[in-house]
Every structure is written in C-alpha cells, then in structure tokens.
C-alpha cells in the first residue's frame, strides 16, 4: 500500500474526511430532528424542544391507524418476499446451470426492471392494473412490487448458484438420489444462505419501495411509507410531531430489518447494480 506523506497529500486527505464527515453530520442531523420532534411537546424558535413527551406516538398510532397500516405492510411484504423467492430462485437455478439459446436475452429481460426507475414503469403498470380491476387492491400492490423483486432475486442468486459445484449434484445422482432427495438434502442446505440473504434484501427494499406502491395502492392497501407520504403531503392537517412519530416508527421498522440483513450481506449488495 502506498502512503503519501507530503503536506499536500495530508491536506487533501483531511479535506476528504471533512467532506465525508459533513455529509454524515447532515444525515444524522436530519434523522435526529425527526426523532427529537416526535418526542417534543413544542419545538419552535429554539435549538431544542421545550419539553419531552411520548404522547405523539399514541396519537399517531390512532390518527393514522398505524395498527392497520403495519399489518397491511407486513402482509404485502411477506407475500412479495415469498412469491419472489418461489419464482426467482428456480429461475436463477435454471440460468446458472443451463446454457440455452436466447439466454442473454432472458438475462437482459431480468436486468431491465432493475434499471428502469420505478416511476417510469409504475405509471403504465398502474394503468394496466386499474384496467383489469386490480388497481388499489392488495394484490395490485403485490404484483407491482414483484416487478423489481423477482428480477432482483434472480440476479442476486445466479452468481451464488454458479459458485456451487455441479459435481455435488452429479454425485447425489450417482448415489441414487431422486429429484426430491436431491432437492431436500443437497440443494436446499446449500442454497439456503444465499436465498436468505436475497430475501432479506427484498424485504428491506419492499418496505421502503415508495413509487410502485404509491401508484397502485388504494386506501386499504397502503404500506407504511405511502401512508407517511400522504401525511407529510397533507401537513398542517395533523400535528407535526404526530407525523414525525410515524416517521420514527417507519424508520425503526426499516432499520431493524436492515440490521438483520446486514448480518448476512455486504452493504454494497443492497445497491450493487440493484436499485
């Protein structure tokens, strides 16, 4: 490793760290304001709130019907994770193990939904879903969220499956394992860590997925992030602290799963050619 020891290099290094620190400070500041505000009795014209209370959490819970919203959010996320695992993992297995004509085209087809931003696909997709009567329903939101999730699982799982030696499967065949036994005793144990990581990432991404859910959700199929958007959008109707309390609940919900996910995956995998 090369270490520069000139004054210029040290100044440069200091400037870079200062910049990084400034960025992180601002992110921390904006998150701290949300938390503090949600706990404050009144916060105007001062550095810190006048007093602290937890009543906004109770009022946010009731006003925004967060019990319902959280239930719906987890139902949607659970179904999306389950379906994208059931559909995505076999597809990744096929793509990792077989070289068929047109494979490149198929892979491109799985990459495109990850590259096209949700707003671009969301509007035509929501239009189609409303035309077939799924717009605004639970399943409409699930289907919309499958658009990035299934390709995500496929793309994440292909390299994982490719690094598992096919000879192991061949050996199982030689020893007389049938398809079920091969699946149960060879593939599942080997694939499980990868599948778990991919599905946790899908979970985090689905909780935070705003655009697609926003465009397809109806009043009874809103997820937490969409409910948060509407309450911020209609700011002034409710107390600011109440909205902030909801934002904190959203943050905690997301971060818990993010921290669990980060035990199994690298942070860069969350963005790595994925978003």
């Amino acid at each position: 490793m090369i270490r520069d020891t000139t004054i210029g290099a040290k100044l440069w290094s200091a400037a870079v760290w200062l910049l990084t620190g400034f960025f992180i400070l601002n992110v921390a500041g904006l998150m701290a304001t949300v938390v503090l505000s949600s706990l404050s009795t009144r916060w105007l014209q001062s550095w810190l709130p006048a007093g602290f209370t937890t009543k906004w959490y109770i009022s946010a819970w009731n006003e925004f019907q967060l019990g319902n919203v959280l239930t719906v959010t987890f139902e949607i996320v659970f179904v999306v994770v389950l379906l994208s695992g059931l559909v995505g993992v076999p597809a990744a297995y096929a793509l990792a193990r077989r070289n068929f004509p047109g494979k490149k085209l198929v892979i491109l087809l799985f990459l495109l939904p990850l590259l096209v931003p949700p707003m671009t696909i969301g509007i035509p997709l929501a239009t189609v879903l409303y035309q077939v009567g799924l717009g605004g329903t639970f399943w409409g939101v699930v289907f919309a969220n499958l658009v990035p999730s299934v390709p995500f699982v496929v793309v994440v799982m292909i390299p994982f499956i490719e690094q598992i030696d096919p000879k192991i499967e061949a050996a199982a065949h030689v020893f007389g394992a049938n398809v079920f036994q091969l699946f149960r005793y060879v593939l599942v144990p080997m694939l499980l860590p990868g599948v778990l990581a991919a599905l946790l990432l899908v979970l985090v991404r689905t909780i935070a997925m705003f655009e697609l859910t926003f465009l397809t959700a109806g009043p009874t199929s809103q997820t937490l992030v969409v409910a948060l958007y509407y309450s911020v959008f209609a700011a002034g109707v409710r107390a600011v602290q109440s909205i902030d309390a909801m934002a904190v609940i959203y943050t905690v919900t997301t971060l818990v799963w993010l921290l669990i996910a980060l035990r199994f995956v690298n942070p860069t995998q969350i963005v790595g050619r994925a978003r």
Binding site: T33, Q45, V204, Y229, A247, T251, L258
Partner: peptide
C-alpha cells in the same frame, strides 16, 4: 458503508420528511 446505506434504505420520503424540519427557517 453501513452508515451510508441507511439513507438509501430509508428512501426519499423519510429524507424529505426530515429535511422539512432540518432545512427549515428554524
């Protein structure tokens, strides 16, 4: 990298909500 992945994960809606207060006149 963990710190930096947090704003991405939380997404634009939460960042917007936080900035409304953080960047406001007070």
């Amino acid at each position: 990298t963990t710190i930096l992945v947090i704003p991405i994960t939380l997404g634009t809606v939460l960042v917007a909500e936080g900035l409304l207060n953080y960047l406001g006149p007070q």
